[in-house]
Design a protein around this nucleic acid. Structure first.
Lengths: 330, 330
DNA sequence: CGGACTACGTGAAACGTTATATCATGAACA
DNA sequence: TGTTCATGATATAACGTTTCACGTAGTCCG
């Protein structure tokens, strides 16, 4: 084989197969073509080891087989596992993934969305912290965890149901006095509903519930102060705590043990949210409400690649589940 | 502004600025051009909100401002943080990142490398588990943790020094009898040197050292069996264990505590490798030898983007450090 | 048997860049 | 003042696809 060191083009394939350029294009794109022609072209492609140039294709047509994925970072295990799932789903469909980290910066995120739009990606999957994201109607965009309105599909876990489930599990395990701890942006996004669900669960079960919600940027000591206010004579007012995040659950657990000498789960039970596992998915770091990452990823990809304006639901809400992780009695 | 709903092209900018197409191209690419012209073009770009089409550019020229990054997955925190750092470094240089997960599959990895090569990325950064990776000389490739020979630059931590440091730290903390545990592929890659460094450290300090090395795919119970063989009358033969990975350190720690009732670090001290932190970098999961992820990322990007055939060293070895994480006495 | 229709492969145009050859302008020198 | 150069903008030809109007051959039916 005379490897002429240059990457073969469609023209080379056409010459090799003795057919016209357009015919090769059709074969490559799965457009029906005469059996005999198809075989000749396929043989030539094989022989020359031809691969379609995504740049030429992207320039000429509107299909680039590329999807942009934007999350704040890959440090948080929730984000990185989510991106891992999305990547899996995309590559199964022969799509490429252009990755962007936004670092929670709304401006940069907006910039990246505009960039991706003008770069003609086939779609954008975005976990956004920008409340008023400007998007072009030309490029399909799917949002995770933030609902922008009917024109932008949003995929999220059943945060409300998850909050409720947390309350139910704590009460099932014998808790009589619950607390909810949350730190986060003031933005209203889907995860906020965890609180509402938790409150609803507490009310339905007739269990008292105290909330402590602090803004992003506030130091964690605000939580420790809160807990110490409710700590008298070696006893905490609460016997069950729902933390908005596994990461927070871990911090709170540590504080309760180290600062107040409490035992977890004997004295206080804790439930987190996300379903983050450590060490290559070997174990849960705390009892938690698990988000269905594979399902979220699959829905995002499905939505972003299917033509817009369909009868697609604007908000897809996926079921969560409870997982024992040692910080509850069961 | 008459937003004609179509993305503006260089031609539009040229018309708007009253200059020729080539002039716009020069301005965009920073090629010197008359002051007056440059200002007119820049104004037009601003006004039309023009962005260069990476597809057209990629088709025409050899620069695509895109780098492919390949690691096995984004589940392991070591990989995801590494990719996070690489992404940071790339976006600081206005490069885009095409991400591929190889799932430890040599065939898929080879396929992806070929794909990336033919897709004309400007470079490939690859953490490979394929011992005989075929690479084209046309596309710069930088390997992490695996040395393929002088023609492919390799970036890695100082694994040998890290192994040695682990031995020193354990002995410093009073250990008299050490063990080394490793699970991994039979492939020879840089991380293998952790063992050699550890052995060298033990010899230099005149401390006995036992090795237990099992192949990838072997169940962890092989380690538990090994440890129990060395467990007599409630005492373990070793008072210091070096695990090849933080993840393994965590598993071993748990086994020692739960299966043998030993205390860590009072009875046995453990050191891992990688410097993996949990919960958004809040804490180390064990005492560990920390790999300099930012430096690794910076070197990879630097190498992959700088023209080949330079007097670039074939193997870059970056200094590691020790971090206390609770499984040693200090 | 012939006209019209169908089916399908062909070849050229176009996508938005970059690179190169060309051309106009003005400066410098004899 | 005429010739030569240097400077730098302009125009144009690729890059490798997809798309579409076109042409050719085969089919069907009256």
């Amino acid at each position: 084989m005379s490897d002429n060191k240059s990457v073969p083009t469609m023209k080379d394939v056409a010459r090799e197969a003795g057919v016209a350029l357009g015919t090769v294009s059709k074969v490559v794109n799965g457009i029906p073509v005469g059996e005999e022609y198809r075989l000749r072209v396929e043989a030539a492609i094989e022989k020359l080891n031809y691969r379609v140039s995504s740049y030429a294709r992207g320039l000429r047509s509107s299909r680039t087989y590329t999807v942009a994925v934007m999350v704040p970072n890959l440090i948080s295990p929730f984000f990185s596992k989510l991106v891992n799932c999305i990547n899996h789903e995309l590559s199964a469909r022969k799509y490429r993934m252009l990755f962007y980290a936004t670092d929670y910066d709304p401006a940069q995120e907006q910039e990246l969305v505009h960039l991706a739009e003008q770069q003609k990606v086939d779609g954008i999957i975005c976990l956004s912290y920008n409340p008023q994201l400007q998007v072009s109607p030309d490029v399909p965009l799917v949002s995770i965890d933030r609902y922008f309105g009917a024109q932008i599909p949003c995929v999220a876990s059943d945060n409300y149901g998850g909050g409720r489930l947390a309350a139910e599990k704590l009460v099932e395990n014998g808790c009589k006095n619950l607390a909810f701890l949350r730190i986060g942006s003031k933005l209203t996004n889907e995860p906020n509903k965890r609180k509402d669900g938790f409150i609803a669960g507490c009310e339905a079960l007739d269990v008292p519930c105290t909330l402590k919600i602090i803004d992003d940027g506030t130091p964690y000591s605000a939580f420790f102060d809160f807990l110490e206010e409710h700590f008298h004579d070696g006893k905490l007012d609460f016997d069950g705590i729902f933390c908005v995040t596994d990461s927070m659950a871990h911090i709170i657990r540590k504080a309760l043990i180290q600062r107040m000498g409490l035992r977890v789960p004997e004295d206080v039970q804790i439930i987190g949210f996300d379903g983050v596992q450590s060490f290559g998915d070997l174990e849960y770091t705390c009892s938690t409400i698990v988000q269905p990452l594979e399902a979220i990823a699959a829905n995002c990809v499905e939505l972003v690649l299917s033509p817009r304006g369909e009868n697609a639901p604007a908000l897809i809400c996926l079921p969560v589940s409870y997982a024992y992780g040692g910080t509850t009695k069961a």
